[in-house]
């Protein structure tokens, strides 16, 4: 197939890096709106070939694409990476157990737990939830029915695993990471995990468990507020994000790294539909 005809019939284009395994499905991947596990805002996820993926959006202040013999004005790069469904389902399972104080709460069935008002997307995750939530829940089987209740100590052990994996990976990224001491790497690992779980109780429990001093996360959350909100115009905030990154880049190694994490790990809400709307 010649490289010039691929764009026929397409009114707009996006450049996306996504797992190869997503091509093998027998139906199109679905864009789902689910609640972000930290912010609770509606966020766009891709559910493709049985795999839940999150979408990241990277855009420099100025940039366009040459795609073969085609020009795309929007120089954005989108990245779809698998997300551990446990992160996404954690707040849903947390609410469903109706825990009060010392009472560990109720056992519930998965289909009941995944009924989240205003978010029908969760119901597509039924078989995924049955497969993955054992690791953080106590379960009870009655006949053919299985009941789940989130277990705090299991969640904490699970979060520690995540921190442990990240701590191993960070020094391998580049020499700036490799050069920093172990304590700082641990703090970075916890802060990355912290972008996916609520401060209260999970992040506080994790800090406590790891013997780290709890840092008031408000500084970080201020940063999050500066990010594009679903209702804002898409082009403006992307520039501000980039300027922020550039400013930080000029400073010490630690800040360079944080800047990187920011560009890399922010979730872009509703990006496919929103970006489209603005252009229409």
């Amino acid at each position: 197939m010649s490289s010039t005809v691929w764009c026929e019939g397409a009114e707009k284009t996006r450049v996306l890096i996504a797992p190869d395994s997503g091509c093998g499905g027998n139906k199109p991947g679905e864009l789902l709106t689910l609640r972000h596990p930290k912010s609770e805002n509606g966020t766009c996820y891709l559910f493709n070939n049985g795999m839940l993926q999150e979408l990241q959006w990277f855009k420099q202040s100025y940039g366009s694409w040459f795609l073969g013999d085609y020009i795309s004005q929007d120089g954005s790069l989108y990245m779809a990476t698998p997300v551990d469904p446990v992160f996404i389902l954690l707040p849903i399972f947390d609410e469903a157990r109706m825990k009060k104080g010392e009472d560990p709460g109720k056992f519930r069935q998965v289909d009941e737990i995944l009924f989240v008002e205003g978010y029908p997307g969760y119901q597509l995750l039924l078989s995924l939830a049955e497969k993955c939530m054992d690791v953080v829940c106590q379960t009870q089987e009655v006949g053919s029915m299985k009941f789940y209740r989130l277990d705090n100590s299991k969640v904490l052990a699970w979060l520690s695993c995540k921190v442990c994996c990240l701590k191993k990976t960070l020094p391998e990224l580049d020499k700036n990471y490799a050069a920093q001491d172990e304590k700082q790497t641990l703090v970075d690992a916890v802060s990355i995990v912290g972008e996916y779980v609520k401060t209260d109780p999970w992040l506080k429990l994790l800090y406590d468990h790891l013997g780290l001093e709890f840092v008031d996360p408000t500084t970080k959350e201020t940063n999050m507020e500066n990010l594009p909100s679903p209702n804002e115009n898409y082009m403006e905030p992307s520039n501000s994000l980039q300027e922020k990154t550039n400013k930080k880049q000029g400073k010490s190694g630690k800040q360079t790294k944080q800047a990187k994490i920011e560009t890399g790990s922010k979730n872009i809400r509703d990006m496919f539909s929103r970006a489209c709307k603005k252009k229409c």
Partner: peptide
Amino acid sequence: RSFHWFSIAEALHKPVKV
């Protein structure tokens, strides 16, 4: 550096076994 995300995502999101 935006490509670091792929390594971080792998470490962060690979399922944890019991």
